[in-house]
Design a protein around this nucleic acid. Structure first.
Lengths: 190, 190
DNA sequence: TCAATTCGATACGAACCGTCTCGATACTAA
DNA sequence: TTAGTATCGAGACGGTTCGTATCGAATTGA
């Protein structure tokens, strides 16, 4: 790779991190609706153009920031049974506190901007989906999933409940809920 | 009631309908992200102030428009079995075509504006949720739902999958999907 | 030394926001 | 008929954010 051997001033890693941190801070303090590129630049001590040079939109900044700090902690449990794996996956997912404002903001942006929606799906949503798909495939090999059950529908049930509760905030998203959901999915799969 | 016996020029029903229709037309033609109060007013041949006098935000206009034309077609099937009732409810729901842009726009707005989120939940989401809760209550009376199963979690499974597929648009939301989901829920409930 | 590139900063036009004002219109009450 | 009241369409207004363009300074490789 000759990527970082080009002439000219190199990209500032310090500024990059300052922008990502400023985006998360602004988002959690004032909410996604109040988030602006100008606000991020001001808090980061950077120019607007520096942001637009590297990210197509503020949503991409937030997505990068989240992926950076989450470091893709997609654990793929393998406890030997679908019930244990599912419960582990859900409890592990629900344990991540304080991410709701970020996730809700990213989803809102994805609903409004089809271009960003692709980024959001490919770089975040489908990653976690693939992890759970692996879990289901192992369960199918063990005969825990009936032949007439579409694994994709099971995936949609798990992530559907997860996102529905996250977005509406009408019911808890805790370990108890995780165990409940895991039990029902195991039963549905037969 | 003396409500429509006040002094002064009465509210124009024609203008009200023109605004609601203009909102839906603008939304479906250009998308929710491009929807503006100025655009609605221009297309409706109305003044901006006329919109702001009756609705707090553009999202409330869209919500009113949708509730107006949908006329709250919340059917509560009663076929004698949970399987049949669920399949009926889902197939009936999925049959409503062309509503995706409207629903996605309303959800996006609800995620960004907590005040509107309350309107959205109370005037739309909870209405359909109540209908399905009635279906589940009857099934419970018939002994089709195990005692250890929380009906609220079953509701979240149904609406979770519905909204997850609607928002992400990664899998079909057709009658086949409805039957599949109904089968799984019946199994989960035992 | 020189060309290339990024940096922070700021100016710019465009769009839309929500408020306000205007004269015209349509209704009630006296 | 007249006075009072509320709505109507239209548009001006200041404010905010957008995304682009431009500036001189800073930092690199050749």
């Amino acid at each position: 790779m000759t990527g970082d051997r080009r002439p000219g001033r190199p990209r500032s890693e310090a500024t990059r991190r300052a922008i990502l941190a400023a985006a998360i801070d602004e988002l959690t303090e004032r909410g996604y609706a109040q988030l602006s590129v100008e606000g991020i630049a001001a808090r980061a001590g950077a120019g607007k153009q520096t942001i637009y040079r590297w990210w197509p939109s503020k949503a991409d900044v937030v997505l990068d920031a989240m992926l950076d700090e989450a470091a893709s902690l997609i654990a793929v449990p393998d406890e030997g049974s679908l019930a244990a794996d599912l419960a582990g996956f859900l409890v592990d997912t629900f344990r991540q506190r304080g991410q709701r404002p970020v996730l809700v903001g990213l989803m809102a942006e994805a609903l409004l901007d089809p271009v960003f929606a692709v980024q959001f799906r490919d770089r975040f949503l489908f990653g976690r989906r693939d992890a759970l798909r692996t879990v289901l495939a192992r369960a199918a090999d063990r005969g825990e999933i009936a032949a007439d059950v579409d694994p994709e529908m099971l995936l949609d049930i798990v992530f559907g409940v997860l996102w529905y509760r996250l977005l509406l905030d009408h019911a808890p998203l805790d370990e108890e809920a995780g165990r409940q959901l895991a039990t029902l999915v195991v039963r549905a799969a037969r």
